[in-house]
Amino acid sequence: MAIVNVTPDSFSDGGERLDPAQAIDDGLRFVSEGADIVDVGGESTRPGAHPVSEEEELRRVLPVVAGLAARQALVSVDTRHASVARACLDAGARMVNDVSALQDDPSLMPLLAGRTAAVVLMHRRGRPQGNYDGPPYTDVVAEVRHFLVDRATICEGAGIDRQRIALDPGIGFGKSPTENLALIAGAGSLADAGYPVLIGSSRKGFIGKLTGVEEPRRRDPASVWLAVEAARRGASIVRVHDVAGTRQALAVAAAIR
């Protein structure tokens, strides 16, 4: 899953794709480099970020989603809002990636129940405005797994087919470096619940804390390694900035296996 943020304030690539034509070109380049899915996001979720209006989010993402879908890319829209998801699905998106696990907008679950799109349910602690502060974890893998499986069960009860649901433990989003590593190592435990698992650790702040590399763009070597490790541990999808490097590394890892 390639990351295409069309925001001015994302932690790594904010401001790079404010021109829809540039975002579409980058998305198509990622597909040519081996991306299976292009994830388009119009609202930053970095710690401290403020929410944007649904109208502004839609203004940012809709032309990019439509442009990529028209060129046969499998497009995911990274949104918490039913109005944004509805317009993007109508424009050809085939997946909704929601950091709130369909909790922030009560209209989103029934919308998806009536569609055929896939949905990614992600775990987070707190909100970005509060830097994802929350109570400490006793067993982060078990607690995140319990939350996600519970959300998936609720979605199934609302009419979303099980085969359309993937789970994301939310690397970052209020977790410590140790907790993030535990969640990546525990991808298999989450996958054992019977849903595909998505891991998105690319360029995140905990890599900087582990390596001393402050600039997010310089964290790609560690990001590629974590993507390979996540796949080895049971992840079905890895969400990345460096598509070409990750695809090469996954190919070599598969050859070794």
Rank of each mutant, 00 (worst) to 15 (best):
D9R: 02
F11P: 00
S12V: 14
E16R: 15
A21N: 09
Q22W: 03
I24A: 01
I24W: 04
S32E: 14
S32C: 05
D39K: 04
G41S: 10
E43T: 13
S53D: 14
L58T: 13
R59G: 03
P63T: 10
L68Q: 04
L74Y: 14
V75P: 02
V77I: 14
S83T: 15
R86M: 00
A87C: 08
G92H: 03
G92Q: 00
A93N: 05
D98H: 03
D104I: 05
P106M: 00
S107E: 15
M109F: 02
L112T: 03
L112K: 01
L112G: 00
T116N: 12
M122Y: 05
H123R: 02
G126S: 09
N131A: 14
Y132C: 03
D133N: 13
T138M: 12
I160G: 04
P169H: 02
P177A: 07
T178N: 15
D192W: 02
D192S: 13
S201E: 01
K209R: 15
E214V: 15
A227P: 06
V228M: 00
G234H: 06
I237T: 04
V240F: 06
V240Q: 05
T246A: 03
Q248M: 09
Q248S: 11
L250Y: 04
A251V: 02
R257V: 14
R257K: 12
